[in-house]
Nucleic acid binder design. Structure first.
Length: 547
RNA sequence: GCGCCACUAGCUCAGUUGGAUAGAGCAUCAGCCUUCUAAGCUGAGGGUCACAGGUUCGAGUCCUGUGUGGCGCGCCA
């Protein structure tokens, strides 16, 4: 974040040369360190409207700048007209002190103060076990929820529980068929579009243990028992799997409650009132073309059952009625097509669909020994999330699912994930944290104390300054990762800060250094420790004190 | 046929609302442990940013078209 005094001084300088619109004043951190700590291309941008050589403009701006030379070491004009600033080590020392004093509040902001956000994620049907796609969804959603908490939002973590409709009927029929088969009728027909996974047999077996053969009559009541039993079984498994990843939702919103509480009917009534529905071929259609879309869609089938769109719209309406300022949905790429329909429905109901942010993540492919592990839902032979957690541990699962940008396909390398070495980025980060903890442990053992009031402006080595520079970025990283819905920005950053610390650790000793270097480096280590701990926590990864 | 996503080093991926010499990890090669954890550090090689146009002081980034791959396009969710 650009220090305020820099922006203020540039604003004054621009006004002094007659530029009152300072919206073009932008700063960036040059990739090349030779160009200093901050650069602005404002002179290049202004050159067009002023019809003057950018270097000339830069010169006239720089002439008006008046910085405290205790803070700013030099101001230069380079290349086509960039103005580059370099700070003094005194400035960085002050920054370290400021950050250190903030403690665990460093990185938090009040952007979302007084606002409420709802993050909906996982939302798997209770018809089976979680697979890897759900895993990615869960990790992205949970980290985004954490990020928004850091922005000051009051966050609700929500799971939409799709326990109504055809899929549930299908589950009931699948369980029932396995039940009959297990009771001796080996050729009892299995539904063609049923759930083929082995877990259905486990459910049926438990059903036998509980009910014996009393469910054999193929009645609606018995199928309902199969359905409820299956739903609860799957729900229980899903929650246990998520718990292994330390993911806990605040609210499980049941789809069937939308029916029980007449929310579906209310929405239909509103649509009717607004003249947005009509009957055709025995079904009820939503006039989406009146709402700016290309195609009309059925919302109530000729059988009388709603399609998924209607409860989805009703559910989002409920979220608005519950008073959220920000509604975030985490969906897999296969749900992309439904988004415009739901948003259009929400608009039609009179809500501001700008408050809804839909995060679409791409798919996961599992790689082992350089070849793709096939995941077939149909055969039921898919790799479950549970199995993956069992195999590589929750920390690796969470980090791996977050280290690619949401919109990119994610290749999950099992071999790398299994590796407990420096090749595995999770351990690289955790190791940096454990090393810092170890320094403080050693200091305690040797009774080495550091002075809280000792000045920090004695640090001037590149390894030290580089670390402080990265530390300063933490709040901006949190904010950007949140606003762009990209936890990967944070995981990349943490990797960078771990690298900067490892380099510092290798080249600079803390214990054994003379004061005031000793105390200043202790503070440097403490700040790094907090950033790693808090950053990893946002990502849902443990920060072990020893490895 | 239409929509969304992707295409950057051998592989997996970053690339800050258009900026200066396009980066990291893995892999390959060469070095560094009497020291607070070597699960670490340092260095080297490796590029037609899929392709072709366009916009401008400047394009991996924005626009148009083409190609390749993934996911969708149902009275399934």
């Amino acid at each position: 974040m650009v220090p305020k005094f820099i922006v203020d001084e540039f604003t004054k300088a621009l006004q002094a040369i007659g530029i009152n619109d300072t919206s073009k004043l932008r700063f960036e951190e040059p990739k090349n360190q030779d160009f200093g700590d901050y650069a602005t291309s404002v002179a290049l941008i202004l050159s067009k409207e002023l019809r003057k050589n950018p270097r000339e403009i830069a010169n006239s701006i720089v002439e008006k700048l008046n910085f405290d030379n205790k803070l700013v070491e030099k101001v230069t004009i380079d290349g086509p007209g960039f103005i580059n600033l370099k700070f003094t080590s005194y400035f960085y020392g002050q920054e370290l002190e400021r950050i250190y004093q903030l403690g665990d509040d460093f990185g938090k902001s009040n952007l979302g103060k007084g606002l409420r956000a709802n993050v909906e994620y996982v939302s798997a049907n209770p018809t089976g076990l979680l697979h890897l796609g759900h895993g990615r969804n869960a990790c992205i959603g949970d980290s985004i929820a954490n990020l928004y908490s850091w922005l000051g939002y009051e966050v609700t973590r929500e799971f939409y529980f799709n326990n109504a409709g055809k899929q549930m009927t299908n589950l009931a029929r699948s369980i029932y068929a396995r039940y009959r088969q297990l009771l001796g009728e080996a050729d009892f027909p299995f539904p063609e579009d049923g759930y083929f996974g082995d877990y259905i047999k486990d459910i049926a077996q438990e059903l036998i243990e509980k009910y014996g053969n009393s469910l054999i009559p193929e009645t609606p009541e018995n199928l309902e028992i199969c359905k409820k039993f299956g739903e609860e079984w799957c729900f229980d498994k899903i929650r246990k799997t998520l718990a292994k990843l330390k993911i806990f939702h605040d609210t499980f919103y049941n789809e069937d409650s939308l029916y029980r509480n007449k929310k579906i009917d209310e929405v239909i009534a509103i649509f009717c009132e607004k003249n947005l529905v009509y009957e055709k071929d025995g079904a009820l259609w939503l006039a989406l073309t009146k709402l700016g879309l290309n195609e009309e869609r059925v919302i109530v089938k000729s059988t009388g059952e709603p399609t998924y769109r209607l409860p989805d719209i009703a559910y989002h309406r409920e979220k608005f009625l519950r008073g959220y300022d920000l509604i975030i949905d985490i969906f897999g790429a296969d749900h992309i097509a439904t988004v415009p329909d739901v948003l259009a429905g929400i608009r039609a109901l009179g809500f501001d669909d700008q408050k809804v942010k839909v995060v679409i993540h791409q798919f996961v492919t599992l790689m082992e020994n350089g070849v793709q592990v096939k995941m077939s839902k149909r055969s039921g032979r898919s790799y479950t999330l549970d199995e993956l957690i069992e195999e590589v541990g929750p920390d690796v699962v969470r980090f791996f699912f977050l280290m690619r940008s949401v919109s990119s396909h994610l290749e999950f390398d099992l071999n790398l994930a299994r590796e407990h070495s420096e090749k595995n980025p999770v351990f690289y980060l955790q190791y940096a944290y454990a090393r810092i903890c170890s320094i403080f442990d050693t200091a305690k053992e040797r009774n080495i104390k550091f002075d809280e009031n000792s000045p920090t402006d004695c640090l001037n080595l590149p390894q030290e300054i580089n670390l402080i520079k990265l530390q300063r970025m933490f709040p901006k990283i949190i904010e950007t990762a949140a606003l762009k819905f990209e936890p990967q920005i944070l995981s990349d950053y943490l990797y960078d800060i771990a690298t900067a610390f490892h380099t510092f650790y290798h080249d600079c000793r803390i214990i054994g250094s003379p004061e005031p270097i000793l105390s200043a480096r202790f503070k440097l280590a403490r700040v790094t420790q907090r950033i790693l701990k808090n950053g990893l926590t946002i990502l849902g990864v443990d920060a072990p004190e020893r490895m």
